[in-house]
Every structure is written in structure tokens, then in C-alpha cells.
């Protein structure tokens, strides 16, 4: 076996370097807040570190809320799998090509076996 080529981020050292660069940039940007003479059009912008704090806090809230949303929105990947049969408009117009109608047949077969309480052939 050949030795696998080492890539840029395979070494944890490089990841650390990138992160350190990010931290330095963040500190610098905070300091610049005081150095640069800003012309401000709204009072909120005058608050100390308004943009940095807003950016950080809003992202944390965004992620935490979104993670919470998973508890009631997340479903299995094939949740909608048998949807084709539920929507009449879709199956009825599925007769456009031979392939499509074949597909329809196999869908409807699936559905009749699945939903037994619907008695159509009476």
C-alpha cells in the first residue's frame, strides 16, 4: 500500500493556526471600533460592540432555535415516499408516457396493498 498523501487540514496544527487567525481578527475588529471614526445613522449603532455582539448572539440563537425545531419537524427520509398516490392530480396526469403510466401502476399497487380499508371493487 502506498502511503496516503497528507493534506492541509489533516494536521491538527493547521486547524489551530486557522482558528488562532480568526481569534486575532476578531480582537482586531473590536479594537478598530474605537479607532475608526464612524458616522452613525442610528443610536443602536452607538452601543459598544453592537455589530460584533449582534452577529455572535444572533448566530447562537439561530442555531439553538433551529436545533430545537428538529424535535418536531424532523422526519424519516422516506416520509413522503407514498405521496404519489395521495394526490389525485399527480397520478391522473401521470399517463403522459408509457414509462410514467407503468410507474403509476406500481404506485397504485403499492397503495392498495397498504391501505386495505378502502374498498373500491365493490
Amino acid at each position: 500500500m502506498k502511503l496516503q498523501k497528507k493534506h492541509l487540514f489533516d494536521a491538527p496544527k493547521n486547524i489551530k493556526r486557522i482558528l488562532r487567525l480568526l481569534y486575532v481578527c476578531c480582537v482586531l475588529l473590536l479594537v478598530l471600533d474605537f479607532i475608526i471614526d464612524r458616522h452613525i445613522s442610528h443610536n443602536w449603532e452607538n452601543l459598544w460592540g453592537f455589530y460584533p455582539i449582534f452577529g455572535f448572539v444572533s448566530c447562537v440563537i439561530l442555531v439553538l432555535v433551529a436545533t430545537r425545531m428538529r424535535t418536531f419537524l424532523m422526519r424519516n427520509e422516506d416520509y413522503y415516499r407514498d405521496e404519489g398516490t395521495n394526490d389525485k392530480a399527480i397520478t391522473s396526469s401521470a399517463t403522459q408516457s408509457g414509462e410514467a403510466s407503468k410507474r403509476k401502476d406500481c404506485i397504485s399497487q403499492k397503495s392498495t396493498t397498504k391501505k386495505g380499508d378502502r374498498d373500491v371493487d365493490d
Binding site: L19, L22, Y23, C25, C26, L29, L30, D33, G49, Y51, P52, I53, F54, G55, F56, V57, S58, C59, V60, V63, L64, A66, T67, M69, R70, L73, M74, R75, N76, E77, Y79, Y80
Partner: peptide
């Protein structure tokens, strides 16, 4: 500032393990 501190938030959440992992799912 806004963008760099958003990136910082991403890093922080990831290091803390709070970032939602990618899951095989639909929403």
C-alpha cells in the same frame, strides 16, 4: 465585524458540540 463574529459563533458552537450534526432526514 458582523461576519467575523458569526464565524466565531460557528466555531464556538462546533467546539462546544452544540452545532446540529448533519442527519439523514427531511424536515
Amino acid at each position: 465585524q458582523l461576519l467575523f463574529f458569526s464565524a466565531l459563533a460557528f466555531v464556538w458552537l462546533n467546539l462546544k458540540g452544540l452545532y446540529p450534526p448533519e442527519l439523514r432526514s427531511i424536515n
